[in-house]
Write a protein that binds this DNA or RNA. Structure first.
Lengths: 331, 331
DNA sequence: CTGTTAGCGCATTCAC
DNA sequence: GTGAATGCGCTAACAG
């Protein structure tokens, strides 16, 4: 069933059918109703490729994901995929997934053409990666969660403004009576949170010290090792804030292995509110980012760039503290 | 840069260019080299939609994933995606992801046309779902991990032959000296493993009893509850075999909460070898399925159906036991 | 082995 | 407000 058959069944021209189906203003309401009804009746569905051939668009979005090093980041990745896929699908776009992208294996041919690209940034993502993907503005691109240093005039950015949630977390710790709080970072170069930590801790009324700051990495093991170091200090922290829930999980294990009970002996706060965090023992108090919102913002800005030629934008999705049971007043 | 410009730059016809680029036999080797070199030089990449319009193919594969209920199944899902995407990409196919498919929201229009479909089966998948997706044989379909009862003449199937690994696991338990072994199933209706369990246990020399068999579900909580029941029995099992690692994880928690130490007081064997299983405490002995192989088999059979019109096939990827530290001789 | 040509299904001019 | 005609880039027949 193609547009010609549809038009013939209606005794009108293909041009009118096309206009009716594409919500063009130059068609009478009556004709449009007829066309739509008949299309439904006959089960007509337009050929994406023919449309693309003539219009240049193909309703395809590519998602580029870096290789993350461990299980839980994978889960986070899947949530992002979900959060993106749904709004895009509702707008008629399909998501092509490209996992584990390596710059070295990009056969310029063989690339499917797409209407836009979503790039999930990783620590190694650079500004020129972005510019290249955007082909200097020819192709709409939105970047999710870029490192601070990454910029591009050609792409939209959706980042996660973690600061409000982090502030909330530190204030909460201070309110519980903590002073001596450790920080375990994820090792992102130039991470805003890490950079701001001294200031943030100070304004929450906490003591910050370099000895209690470790840029660990992203895995549970990284978190465990870092926490092990901090908790073995003679002036050990009464609470630990970690840059990710995965690190927090590792920190919990470290505490347990040292015979310390969470939250009685040490409080732990994570960041990301990944699914598993509520099932840890004890359930992890954590800074929640709204991944669904991230996906929605990314999808909307991308569609805006594609359909309305919106200029690149910068948006943030915010964060807040979710209090569960991994924090208590210090002994 | 399109095929016409490329042809003009070479002073040959577009037909020859097309043939050279598509590895057709009717082209001289010299011409082919020239064409390929020039194409690279000029950065020519063919338009997928133009190609699809005339050839009917578009090098697109759709992956349909059901909504899984918990975090770890998500991780398993992502591994499958990885395992599929890589071989497909190498063959020039792109993967469209469709998450959380619900039968109720399939607008027949708006579906992107694809060359083939991969369906990850869930407990609720039925034979007619498959037939429908395959459009009675018009569209190549491969189903990964179907429930036993699902069949279709129109689709290929890749399932995970878990039996060898399960046998290995039970024999291992028997060799350690266990007799009284609990089984926690995932609740799949008509699951082969569950159905075969009495026989499998018997042939391993273990005692099977209905009281020690629970079809729990898929979540960690399900596993914990089921194990709690089994371990509270007065004649409690000295070992538990679970249908998934997630269930095993829950079972470990149950044991711990009862003051039982794994593996000293109770041995636990899981199934799936998901990433996290090696990081549990103790590291989980488990039956490993080869997800990468599953993805490869699925990709290959799908491409075979598409490109060589192979008939639907049935394949299995096998399994084997990975011994870590969650099992010991019974006290 | 290579060239010529005819569409694939659609959106879009330009007429009317 | 509608119809006729054109061409997007490519592959497949058919000729040579």
């Amino acid at each position: 069933m193609n547009i010609v058959e549809l038009a013939r069944a209606l005794n009108i021209s293909t041009a009118t059918v096309s206009r009716a189906l594409n919500n063009r203003p130059e068609v009478s309401a009556g004709t449009r109703r007829l066309v739509i009804a008949k299309a439904q009746e006959l089960g007509y569905s337009p050929s994406a490729s023919a449309r693309q051939l003539v219009s240049g668009r193909n309703q395809l979005i590519r998602l580029e994901c870096p290789r993350y090093p461990n299980a839980l980041s994978d889960q986070y990745l899947l949530e992002v995929i979900r959060a993106l896929e749904e709004p895009l699908r509702k707008r008629g776009y399909a998501l092509i997934i490209r996992l584990d992208v390596n710059a070295d294996e990009l056969p310029p041919a063989g690339q499917h053409s797409v209407d836009g690209i979503v790039i999930i940034a990783e620590p190694g993502t650079t500004s020129s990666d972005i510019d290249e993907a955007a082909k200097l503005g020819e192709l709409p691109v939105v970047v999710i969660g870029p490192p601070e240093s990454v910029e591009s005039r050609y792409a939209s950015f959706v980042d996660v403004d973690t600061l409000p949630g982090v502030e909330e977390a530190l204030n909460y710790l201070a309110a519980l009576g903590h002073r001596n709080v450790g920080y375990i970072g994820s090792g992102y170069l130039g991470s805003l949170v890490s950079a701001e930590m001294p200031k943030l801790m100070a304004s929450a009324g906490l003591d910050w010290s370099p000895a209690l700051t470790i840029e660990a990495g992203v895995s549970r093991d990284d978190g465990r090792e870092a926490a092990l170091k901090q908790l073995s200090l003679k002036n050990r922290p009464t609470a630990i804030f970690t840059r990710t829930d995965v690190l927090a999980w590792g920190a919990m294990e470290a505490a347990n292995s040292l015979g310390l009970e969470v939250p009685v002996d040490v409080s732990i706060i994570g960041h990301d509110n990944i699914k598993i965090s509520s099932t840890l023992n004890p359930p992890l108090t954590t800074v929640a980012i709204n991944i669904t919102e991230v996906g929605r913002l990314a999808a909307e800005s991308l569609i805006g760039m594609i359909e309305d030629h919106n200029p690149p934008s910068k948006q943030s999705s915010s964060s807040h503290l979710i209090i569960r049971r991994s924090c208590a007043a210090p002994k």
